[in-house]
Amino acid sequence: MQLTEKHKQYWQKNLRLTGILLAIWFVATFVIGWFARDLQSITILGFPFPFYMGAQGSLIIYVVIIWYYAHSMNKLDREYGVHEGDD
């Protein structure tokens, strides 16, 4: 089995997408968590911002990250002809 240039490109694209989404995940979790006390004065829907993120905002971001990954990878599979048969 020899990987073609196209296959390598597919994997590069996958790595880039994974990297970007992980960076968003990291910011939503750890950067906001680290600065939680400094962001306390911002209010959203009645919540202090860090509390809102910890209880709801970051969770929504996680759900969206996973949805977006599944959506774009399933599309990328087809583009690069590495998708599975339909069943």
Partner: peptide
């Protein structure tokens, strides 16, 4: 958030 790691 752990599910992001599972998914990716």
């Amino acid at each position: 958030g752990g599910y992001c790691l599972v998914a990716l």
